[in-house]
């Protein structure tokens, strides 16, 4: 079997006395959308931070493109083709939308003219074409999420880590962004998304990993994991699976 583009093997990360991620493993193949779901505080964002080099894991390995990249700094991983968005958006607030995306585009295009052209194309792809000259700090939350996505895409990644890009968007905004994400996988990118919007997880992902209290407690197709009693309990509390099951019978 061909090794998936990203494979995370037994990652643990400890913050002092708190084991935020506990021997978590997952993988993500190219051309496919993989979701990472789990209750709040499960360690999803911490796991993303480890994968993208912002945190060094206490144990475990991150393999990317067949190489061990554990502990490499974020900028080097970005050069290898790994891009991420931030759950709490981090726009370059003082810059225009165009200049924000330009920073990402510069990674592969040293010349300003080339990078600007790429930035404009990417902006149009994610629906920011009309806002190119707007200062980033004047944008709505929804537009900032798109800007995160646009900046990451401008680096021309092979692997895209999306941390709740749909959170805070209204249903019609979600309906606009979902096809954009689907198209990325169609272009051959490996997409890993942390997401709470289950409607999007169900419709987009080929494979889902469920993280709870730092551990991967289930994985499989979206239908499979949402039917898993352990997953239901992780979200709704101990004994919930039995109650939900009983309710279904009646």
């Amino acid at each position: 079997m061909v090794e998936p583009l990203l494979s995370v093997e037994g990652i643990s990360h400890r913050f002092g006395g708190l084991l935020a991620v506990d021997a978590a493993s997952l993988w993500a193949p190219a051309g496919s959308i993989t979701s990472l779901i789990g209750p709040n505080g499960a360690g999803k964002t911490t796991l993303f931070a480890v994968i993208s080099g912002f945190l060094k894991p206490t144990a475990g390995r991150v393999r990317y493109g067949g190489e061990d990249v554990t502990g490499e700094p974020p900028h080097r991983l970005a050069r290898r083709g790994m891009a991420r968005t931030f759950q709490i958006t981090k726009p370059f607030a003082g810059l225009s939308v165009r200049d924000n995306i330009l920073i990402g585009a510069h990674l592969r295009h040293p010349a300003r003219a080339d990078a600007l052209a790429v930035a404009e194309t990417v902006a149009r792809d994610v629906g920011l074409g009309e806002l190119l000259d707007r200062p980033a700090h004047t944008m709505t939350a929804a537009a900032r999420k798109r800007l995160e996505l646009a900046r990451a895409l401008a680096t021309e990644p092979k692997l895209l880590l999306l941390d709740e890009v749909l959170a805070g968007l209204n249903p019609s905004e979600i309906r606009e962004v979902v096809p954009v994400i689907r198209a990325l996988a169609g272009r051959g990118l490996a997409v890993v998304m942390i997401e709470h919007v289950m409607q999007a997880v169900m419709s987009l992902s080929a494979h889902v990993f469920v993280l709870a209290e730092g551990r991967i407690i289930a994985e499989g197709s979206p239908a499979h994991v949402t039917a898993d009693p352990a997953v239901v309990e992780a979200y709704l509390g101990h004994g919930a699976a039995a109650k939900v099951g009983a309710h279904d019978v009646h």
Binding site: R79, K90, L95
Partner: peptide, 18 residues
């Protein structure tokens, strides 16, 4: 451009390969 990016948000800049 990268220098300004670092000024505006160092983490975001690093995530973009800076």
């Amino acid at each position: 451009a990268w220098l300004i990016a670092v000024r505006e948000n160092e983490d975001a800049a690093m995530a973009l390969g800076v």
